[in-house]
Design a protein around this nucleic acid. Sequence first.
DNA 1: GTAGTTGGCTATGAAAGTCATACCCTCGTA
DNA 2: TACGAGGGTATGACTTTCATAGCCAACTAC
Lengths: 180, 180
Amino acid sequence: MGTSNGGDDDDTLCPIAHSTGLVGDRWSILIVRELLMGQTRFQDLQAQTGATSQMLAARLKRLEADGLVARRAYSQRPLRHEYRLTPKGVHLMPVILALRAWGESWCKPAGGELAIRMFHRACGAELDLNGRCPACKTLVAWTDMQGRPTAAYQTERARRAAEFADHRQKSTSPQSESRS
Amino acid sequence: MGTSNGGDDDDTLCPIAHSTGLVGDRWSILIVRELLMGQTRFQDLQAQTGATSQMLAARLKRLEADGLVARRAYSQRPLRHEYRLTPKGVHLMPVILALRAWGESWCKPAGGELAIRMFHRACGAELDLNGRCPACKTLVAWTDMQGRPTAAYQTERARRAAEFADHRQKSTSPQSESRS
DNA sequence: GTAGTTGGCTATGAAAGTCATACCCTCGTA
DNA sequence: TACGAGGGTATGACTTTCATAGCCAACTAC
């Protein structure tokens, strides 16, 4: 109970060792990203992260055990669950924003397009990657920001969802639409 | 060759997928933490992160290939190297700071002591976990902060270094100083 | 001048994690 | 009655990581 991973990070004062014990892997981070973007369903998480269903199930289980994610039934009769971040999970936003800024600044193919544009809730101006508002001349706290995906990124996500649906369909009906 | 990991993250606009492709694992993050704290030597990195020598060697190799770390000989005749962050690596500071803030806020055993205290370079006041200066009433950029480890954390690190040295000694000289 | 020591790794098998693929169960509905 | 959607689990191959051991090239102490 409580933390459920192997790392015995309780014998250190270092907060980073503690953090990475809970979200120190690629899949957890991508899942948190999706949840922060508002996805709540297993399928959508799977489609957008690219994780296998096992990985996703295992990580969600761990994130739930660690108190970052809450699972709730959104339908009783066909029993279906949705996944949402708890406050503890939501407060990972600054980590995600920092990874975003770094990724946009140092990992993109050069002059590439942003995936998400961030705006200052107070004045509506678009923020730079450091979270600075050019209008107000201040650093903006993450709670005062609002993000909006660019058209290109929305397209990419829609494509991913469609491909995933396709893929699923193919595996359930082995023999069919391979017609020229 | 630039990026050397398996993840084919080049087909997405998402900067977080790119970032986690390079630093999306526990060991890389802990290594970057140590390098940011000023450690440069293999042994020290190993002692403070707790990684095995293979893991450390492999990760340093990958971090170097990805341009986050530069390896330089600090001695020619006994050929010895030191590891330092490149600008690309140094700019992961905000990620580390965000993980720190989250870890201190949500993962510590309750009312625990900080590992590092952060100060505003401009006025010397101690910052809160969100990077806000109580004196200046502003958010402070990471470039304007200075960290200082607390006594307890320094002690912990010294202990870890000593234990690691011990451990090494024992494995090279199997029979000796087991004296009370 | 040789026996240990120090720093920085490699080698080896066992253990754990991850993957692709397949399958399952419960409903709703056509 | 039979899809098909949603949310998973089961299986066996493949890959990564681990603990432990060893290696090599300077030095340094005797």
